[in-house]
Amino acid sequence: MTTAASQRSMQFQETLSGWAFISPLLLGFGLFFVGPLIAIFGYSLTEWNILSQRSTYVGLKNYHNILFDNPEFWQVLRSSLIFAGGLVPLNVALSLALALALNKAFRGVIVFRTLFFAPVVTAGAAWAIVWTFLLQKESGGVNQMLALIGIEGPNWLREPDWAMVSVIVTRVLKNVGLNMILYLAALQTISRDYREAAVLDGANRWQIFRNITWPLLAPTTLVITIVTVVGSLKVFDHIYLMTNGGPENATLVLAYYIYERAFEFFEVGYASSLAVVLFFITLGLTLAQWLMKRETD
Score class of each variant (00 low, 15 high):
residue 71 P to H: 09
residue 57 Y to M: 11
residue 66 I to L: 12
residue 76 V to T: 09
residue 97 A to P: 08
residue 36 P to S: 03
residue 101 A to M: 15
residue 8 R to Q: 03
residue 80 S to T: 15
residue 73 F to R: 05
residue 72 E to V: 14
residue 6 S to H: 10
residue 104 K to L: 11
residue 61 K to T: 15
residue 14 E to R: 14
residue 80 S to R: 03
residue 27 L to N: 00
residue 18 G to Q: 00
residue 82 I to V: 15
residue 12 F to K: 05
residue 37 L to M: 15
residue 91 N to L: 13
residue 8 R to W: 01
residue 13 Q to R: 09
residue 77 L to Q: 08
residue 44 S to K: 02
residue 27 L to V: 13
residue 45 L to D: 01
residue 22 I to Y: 00
residue 89 P to M: 01
residue 29 F to K: 00
residue 104 K to G: 03
residue 22 I to V: 15
residue 80 S to I: 05
residue 28 G to R: 00
residue 4 A to R: 10
residue 41 F to W: 08
residue 92 V to N: 10
residue 109 V to G: 02
residue 18 G to V: 01
residue 99 A to F: 06
residue 91 N to R: 09
residue 111 V to E: 00
residue 109 V to W: 04
residue 49 N to D: 15
residue 42 G to W: 10
residue 106 F to N: 03
residue 102 L to T: 13
residue 14 E to V: 06
residue 66 I to A: 08
residue 23 S to A: 15
residue 100 L to M: 14
residue 47 E to F: 06
residue 18 G to I: 00
residue 72 E to F: 11
residue 51 L to F: 08
residue 99 A to W: 04
residue 81 L to R: 06
residue 27 L to D: 04
residue 98 L to F: 14
residue 44 S to R: 03
residue 81 L to H: 08
residue 15 T to C: 05
residue 44 S to P: 08
residue 10 M to E: 01
residue 108 G to E: 02
residue 104 K to V: 11
residue 34 V to R: 00
residue 28 G to A: 11
residue 12 F to T: 08
residue 83 F to M: 11
residue 17 S to E: 00
residue 100 L to Q: 09
residue 112 F to D: 05
residue 77 L to R: 03
residue 75 Q to F: 10
residue 69 D to Q: 13
residue 35 G to A: 15
residue 54 R to Q: 15
residue 12 F to S: 04
residue 4 A to E: 13
residue 110 I to L: 12
residue 60 L to K: 07
residue 84 A to L: 13
residue 105 A to Y: 06
residue 26 L to A: 09
residue 107 R to F: 11
residue 71 P to V: 08
residue 29 F to Q: 01
residue 28 G to Y: 08
residue 107 R to E: 01
residue 35 G to M: 13
residue 22 I to S: 00
residue 99 A to C: 10
residue 30 G to I: 03
residue 41 F to E: 02
residue 46 T to N: 09
residue 85 G to A: 09
residue 73 F to D: 06
residue 68 F to H: 07
residue 35 G to Y: 15
residue 65 N to Y: 13
residue 20 A to N: 01
residue 33 F to P: 02
residue 88 V to T: 12
residue 28 G to S: 06
residue 12 F to H: 08
residue 90 L to Y: 07
residue 75 Q to V: 14
residue 4 A to I: 11
residue 26 L to W: 00
residue 5 A to D: 03
residue 112 F to Q: 10
residue 95 S to C: 07
residue 17 S to M: 12
residue 105 A to R: 14
residue 52 S to V: 10
residue 23 S to C: 02
residue 19 W to A: 04
residue 34 V to A: 14
residue 66 I to C: 09
residue 110 I to V: 13
residue 13 Q to E: 02
residue 11 Q to V: 05
residue 74 W to M: 02
residue 26 L to D: 01
residue 60 L to T: 14
residue 71 P to L: 07
residue 52 S to W: 05
residue 65 N to M: 10
residue 84 A to M: 15
residue 109 V to Q: 09
residue 30 G to H: 02
residue 49 N to Y: 06
residue 94 L to V: 15
residue 64 H to M: 14
residue 107 R to S: 06
residue 30 G to S: 06
residue 78 R to C: 11
residue 40 I to M: 08
residue 87 L to S: 15
residue 60 L to H: 07
residue 102 L to C: 10
residue 84 A to Y: 02
residue 35 G to V: 05
residue 87 L to D: 02
residue 98 L to I: 12
residue 37 L to Y: 04
